[in-house]
Amino acid sequence: MASDKTNVMRVLEQHKIAYTAHEYPHGKEAVDGVSVSKLLGLNVDQVFKTLVARGRSGSFHVFVIPVAKELDLKKAAKAAGEKSVELVHVKELLGLTGYVRGGCSPVGMKKAFATVFDESVNTIPTVIVSAGKIGYQIECAPADLIALTRAKTAPITTD
Rank of each mutant, 00 (worst) to 15 (best):
L93E: 10
A2Q: 12
R10W: 08
P66F: 12
K91D: 04
V64Q: 03
Q46K: 11
Y24L: 05
A77F: 06
R56N: 02
A112M: 14
V85N: 05
G27E: 07
C104A: 12
D45V: 08
V88I: 15
N43A: 15
G95E: 05
K133E: 14
G55V: 03
A21D: 05
R10H: 12
S130V: 01
T50F: 06
H89R: 14
V85L: 11
L42S: 05
E82K: 10
T20F: 05
S3M: 14
G41Q: 05
D159L: 13
E86Y: 00
G41F: 10
V127E: 08
T6K: 08
K152T: 14
V44A: 08
P66Q: 12
T126A: 12
G95Q: 11
S120M: 11
A21C: 04
S35M: 13
A21H: 02
A68R: 07
D72H: 14
R150K: 15
Y24G: 04
T153V: 15
P155A: 15
A76H: 07
F48C: 13
I134F: 04
I134L: 08
K110L: 14
G108T: 03
C104K: 11
A114V: 13
F60M: 09
N7Q: 12
A18M: 12
H22C: 03
T153E: 01
V47E: 04
